[in-house]
Amino acid sequence: MSHQKKQKKKPHQQDVELPITPMLDMTFQLMAFFIATYHPAPTEGQIAMALPLDKQTSKSATPTEQNEDLDVKSSVLVIVRSESGGISGLAMRRDQTNEPINYDSLKDLEDALKKVAQQEGKGKEVVDTTLKISADNRLKYVHLVEVMDACLRAGFTKLGFEANEAQAANRP
């Protein structure tokens, strides 16, 4: 009895310790894995296209859709010529009746497009006019994007493509 009383007076206290070491080991392994497999890829961006209804589609489209398609008031056409994949010539035509004006560099074209955007937008930031690009088949995509980039920077948000003679001839 006396022994039991002693135990009650001085209960054996045990410290509860959380074993951190295995957790730390695992965490370091995880970190090593993620550091080893970390490849920060460049962020992708989008360029939305405003493509008019194809003529074949518009024949079967509803009248409203046809009207929307025809409702493009005026369009600016950028012509990109290419001989060996690069840009060998740049031109812009404002209306179908006008003759295209040639530009020596992409910078010159961008400056001209900015002026057109200001006129078409009438002071607004967003230009409602559709800008179409007609490019040669040989043009590399990287250069096409350079031209599209210049058009977007000039203020045109609606970009589309127009078939040139060779592409129109290859229509399926």
């Binding site: 989008q46 209804l53 194809d54 040669d136 088949n137 040989r138 043009l139 096409l144 078939a163």
Partner: peptide, 24 residues
Amino acid sequence: DFGQIFPLLRVVRTIGFTEIQLRA
């Protein structure tokens, strides 16, 4: 080449998809 991309755009449009994006 643009000549490889343009027919795709045409096909996509002919089928009737309206939301088309290019990525860069």
